[in-house]
Write a protein that binds this DNA or RNA. Structure first.
Lengths: 183, 183
DNA sequence: GACACACTAGTCACGCTGCGACTAGCGCAG
DNA sequence: CTGCGCTAGTCGCAGCGTGACTAGTGTGTC
């Protein structure tokens, strides 16, 4: 028993961590477009801007995401230029690992209907910002959730259907139409 | 100066607090149906049950909601029966103030489209659990969000509409249909 | 020239949420 | 009588959202 790795093993130390949250991924994806500093990101993800219409991150969240991403090696500080008319301004950029993570994330469809509203839309928007074709993601998403949507729609047939099922069916129809029409 | 209340004043102690969160209101509403203890509430609001299909609260959340509600005077402990085959089991019930708060909450439509999915549905479900007629709430909700929904739908006319606007319009149509058909 | 104001940049503190893990009492099967 | 599983409730951690705070750097006004 002594020669067996007692617990988990030694190579867990460089584990990728508990997979970044949506907030982190959005920040990472935007940083992957171009290097930027926290305040600029916060402006871009604030209530007013095009990404902010889908997910909004307040300033403290942005800086915390930056800290986590930097700790995970997905981004790194580039310059700490004292810049003209600006106090500190630490600029970050995505590392190779970060770029890979973003590409993988953008290619993957979301797993649940409830994730379409924010996560899927934000992927579409980011692809659009990069000038990438969303066709593949859309196809993958249709494939991933098509059966689920059909089921939800079918569950609302007949009389005396539960309010929740009725709601979900209506919603599923709207989503299915969106996925069919988009692209 | 000694006879003056130094700080905020004596009548702030029973202030209503910063208005309960959705979690708290759901717990309060269920407690207002019948006295219960935390574990039973957690079972009722867990992943499997009818309310759990709309909002799910894990056990720690339930107990924290209970603490807040009790601190705010909206519920109170009734019995600490050592019960048969059960360790402690503190039973809570809603106070008069709690009942008033629940009634007010259930009567009021939600303010944003994004609140329909969870908050509005949960109100409908709770009304249903009580055997109350949802007609008034539905009417109020149509009145509150009808114009917004019309706007969202109208924003998707024409060509080259933004993905987000397209999504919202689809969604708004589904919601409008739900509100029209329900009840 | 002095002073208030606004903008950029980043940080702190507080409370809520979600999740996994923990204690502890009791009944029951082997 | 040991271990398993259920009931009941608690703890701790990390993430999220908000509001408020410091601290530089202009800019307009008297």
């Amino acid at each position: 028993m002594a020669d067996q790795p007692d617990r988990i093993g030694p190579d867990v130390a460089r584990a990728p961590g508990p997979s970044p949250s949506l907030n982190d991924l959005v920040v990472l994806a935007v940083l992957d477009e171009a290097p930027a500093h926290g305040f600029a990101l916060a402006r871009l993800l604030g209530a007013g801007s095009d990404l902010g219409r889908i997910v909004t991150l307040a300033r403290p969240q942005v800086y915390r995401s930056i800290d986590r991403l930097a700790a995970g090696g997905l981004i790194e500080a580039v310059t700490v230029e004292p810049g003209d008319g600006a106090p500190k301004r630490t600029v970050y950029t995505s590392t190779d690992g970060g770029a890979v993570a973003v590409a993988a994330w953008l290619a993957e469809p979301v797993a649940h209907v409830r994730d379409l509203r924010v996560e899927f839309l934000v992927k579409l928007r980011i692809l659009q910002r990069r000038g990438s074709d969303p066709a593949e993601l859309l196809a993958a998403q249709r494939l991933a959730l098509g059966p689920t949507l059909d089921q939800l729609i079918a569950a609302a047939d007949g009389d005396g259907v539960d309010v929740v099922d009725r709601w979900r069916a209506n919603n599923a129809e709207a989503v299915a139409r969106f996925l069919a029409d988009a692209g």
